[in-house]
């Protein structure tokens, strides 16, 4: 489904990704772990098509298409979802109004009929239960005045409504207390199935106690230096990134 091959990327003149390669198949959950500044968030943003990240080499293929040629909205239409590390506030824009516009744009791009207000409301009412948010959240401004935890839950709520094929979660666990972390993890687990691929970008292992990945990759200096199963995350927790990085260099 997603094939990243020797990807190089930089912001301004600063090289961030240095030959990153990764294969993600349908239904797999991959965790990307690494120390601060290793390029985790850059990877997430490059995949979603954010401006300001220059791709200087390599390729990304998604369902047989050249992903890097697509605009951010085209990627969304194709089923890619990014849960933002820092969800932005958009004052005055109703939370579900944005979501409805998104859902219908995606449906339209696939030649499906758009949902009317009644159908859409039924859908979001169902999905919002997943993240245990009150219904009045839906009619507030997008992330306007939300706490850190509320913002992250809102991201997972949006993911539940948009039903992406590939979800990239950029440090969704950061800034969450343990209760909120459980809610978010439950939400993600609920959305996990054999059709949907998930890439979890995280700094800490604790999220992976709740969402158990199929694969764990260690990212350092812009490339994946070690890959393994979920047990690799535990090893990282015990030994720290330094140790794993030294071993990888020696190997």
């Amino acid at each position: 489904m997603l094939s990243i091959n020797d990807l190089h990327s930089q912001i301004d003149d600063k090289k961030i990704l240095n030959g990153l390669s990764l294969e993600v198949n349908k239904g797999e959950v991959h965790a990307i772990m690494g120390p601060n500044g290793s390029g985790k968030s850059t990877l997430a943003n490059v995949l979603a098509g954010r401006d300001g990240y220059d791709v200087t080499g390599g390729s990304v293929t998604y369902e047989g298409q050249d992903l890097l040629e697509m605009s951010p909205e085209e990627r969304a239409w194709a089923g890619i979802f990014l849960a933002f590390q820092y969800p932005v506030e958009i004052p005055g824009v109703n939370n579900i109004y944005l979501l409805k516009a998104g859902v219908n744009a995606i449906r339209k791009s696939r030649g499906e009929t758009e949902l009317d207000a009644v159908e859409f409301l039924a859908l979001v009412r169902e999905k919002i239960k997943l993240v245990k948010m009150k219904e009045d959240f839906m009619s507030r401004g997008v992330n306007e005045g939300f706490s850190g935890g509320e913002k992250k839950r809102n991201e997972i709520f949006q993911m539940a409504v948009l039903e992406p094929k590939l979800a990239i979660l950029d440090e969704t666990d950061s800034g969450l207390d343990i209760d909120a972390l459980k809610i978010v993890a439950d939400g993600v687990n609920h959305l996990r199935n054999e059709e949907r691929s998930i890439v979890l970008v995280t700094h800490y292992q604790r999220l992976l106690n709740y969402i158990v990945p199929d694969f764990v990759h260690v990212l350092a200096n812009g490339r994946i230096i070690k890959s393994g199963g979920s047990e690799l995350a535990l090893q990282l927790e015990e030994q720290g990134y330094e140790q794993v990085m030294r071993e990888a260099e020696a190997a």
Binding site: R50, F84, V88, A101, G141
Partner: peptide, 30 residues
């Protein structure tokens, strides 16, 4: 109008033009 706001809307599938409209209309809501 922040690039961050525009990108956020576009990532949700909303075209750039519609995103601008949405943000501006939100600004004028009162």
């Amino acid at each position: 109008i922040g690039d961050d706001q525009l990108f956020y809307c576009r990532q949700r599938g909303v075209s750039e033009e519609d995103a601008v409209n949405m943000i501006v209309n939100g600004f004028c809501k009162d």
